[in-house]
Computed example of a mutant assay.
Amino acid sequence: MNRRALLLFLLASLLPAATLAQGAAKLPKPGPKDLCPVCGMLVSKYPNWIATIVYKDGHAHHFDGAKDMFKMWFEPAKYVAGHKREDMAALWVTDFYNLQPVDARKAWFVVGSDVLGPMGHELVALASREDAADFLKDHKGRRILTFEQVAKDLPFRLDDGKF
């Protein structure tokens, strides 16, 4: 491989990470009075659990955990009139280990662990499959799920302690 091809390959492989980091850098932080639209809790009191949905127009809703974010994802109009899934541009969750924003669609979620969020049993977000496997083992988790594997009823079952 010549030097030019190698340089183009490296640049292309770094571009998605740079774009993701740029998106996280633009992620609005919840203010001191921002309430979770699902449960009404003050979100800023729980910075280690913050999840955020950013809309195409730049508006954002913050949540006290991924569990409530998923409730909104599945039924946005139930929680905020006039909001639709089609208008959602990005979904972010806070990684349990490094406390940094992670694209929710690329995160791994552990359910049934001994770690509780602000509202009890939670979908604990992790940035990698390896971190999720370690967390599952260290915290007696039951399952690891991708974003697509989170079923509509799971956040409500977690409220009842059912995994």
Score class of each variant (00 low, 15 high):
Met1Cys: 08
Met1Lys: 11
Met1Phe: 12
Met1Tyr: 09
Asn2Ser: 13
Arg4Trp: 14
Leu6Trp: 06
Leu6Asp: 07
Leu11Gln: 12
Leu11Thr: 15
Ser13Pro: 07
Leu15Asn: 15
Pro16His: 06
Ala17Pro: 01
Ala17Trp: 12
Ala18Tyr: 10
Ala18Trp: 11
Thr19Glu: 11
Pro28Val: 02
Lys29Trp: 12
Lys29Phe: 11
Pro30His: 09
Gly31Asn: 10
Gly31Trp: 03
Pro32Gly: 00
Lys33Ile: 05
Asp34Gly: 10
Leu35Trp: 01
Cys36Phe: 05
Val38Gln: 00
Val38Phe: 02
Cys39Glu: 03
Met41Thr: 11
Leu42Asn: 09
Val43Gln: 05
Val43Gly: 02
Ser44His: 14
Lys45His: 11
Trp49Ile: 05
Thr52Asp: 07
Thr52Asn: 07
Ile53Leu: 13
Ile53Glu: 11
Val54Met: 06
Tyr55Gln: 02
Lys56Phe: 07
Lys56Tyr: 03
Lys56Ile: 00
Ala60Ile: 03
His61Gln: 13
His62Phe: 14
Gly65Leu: 11
Ala66Tyr: 06
Ala66His: 05
Asp68Arg: 09
Asp68Phe: 07
Phe70Thr: 13
Phe70Gln: 11
Lys71Thr: 01
Lys71Asn: 10
Lys71Pro: 00
Phe74Ile: 10
Glu75Thr: 02
Glu75Asp: 02
Ala77Ile: 04
Lys78Pro: 05
Tyr79Lys: 11
Tyr79Leu: 12
Val80Thr: 03
Gly82Ala: 02
His83Thr: 14
His83Cys: 01
His83Asn: 07
Arg85Ser: 11
Glu86Gly: 07
Asp87Pro: 10
Asp87Gln: 09
Met88Val: 14
Met88Leu: 12
Ala89His: 08
Ala90Gln: 15
Ala90Tyr: 10
Ala90Cys: 00
Leu91Tyr: 15
Thr94Gly: 12
Thr94Arg: 07
Asp95Phe: 11
Asp95Gln: 10
Phe96Thr: 08
Tyr97Gly: 00
Tyr97Asp: 13
Asn98Met: 13
Leu99Gly: 07
Gln100Met: 11
Gln100Glu: 15
Pro101Trp: 09
Pro101Phe: 06
Ala104Cys: 13
Arg105Phe: 08
Trp108Tyr: 14
Val111Ile: 15
Gly112Ile: 02
Ser113Ala: 12
Asp114Asn: 12
Val115Asp: 05
Leu116Ile: 01
Leu116Met: 02
Gly117Trp: 05
Pro118Ser: 00
His121Gln: 09
His121Arg: 03
Glu122Leu: 04
Leu123Ser: 04
Val124Ile: 15
Val124Phe: 08
Ala125Phe: 01
Ser128Arg: 08
Arg129Pro: 05
Glu130Gly: 00
Asp131Tyr: 13
Asp134His: 15
Lys137Tyr: 04
Asp138Ala: 06
Asp138Met: 09
His139Ala: 01
His139Leu: 00
Lys140Glu: 04
Arg142Glu: 06
Arg142Gln: 02
Arg143Leu: 10
Arg143His: 07
Ile144Thr: 00
Thr146Leu: 12
Thr146Ala: 12
Glu148Asp: 14
Glu148Lys: 11
Gln149Ile: 05
Gln149Met: 02
Gln149Gly: 13
Val150Leu: 09
Val150Gly: 10
Ala151Thr: 13
Lys152His: 14
Lys152Glu: 15
Asp153Tyr: 09
Leu154Asn: 02
Leu154Asp: 07
Phe156Ala: 02
Phe156Gln: 02
Leu158Ala: 03
Asp159Thr: 05
Asp159Asn: 01
Phe163Trp: 05
Phe163Ala: 04
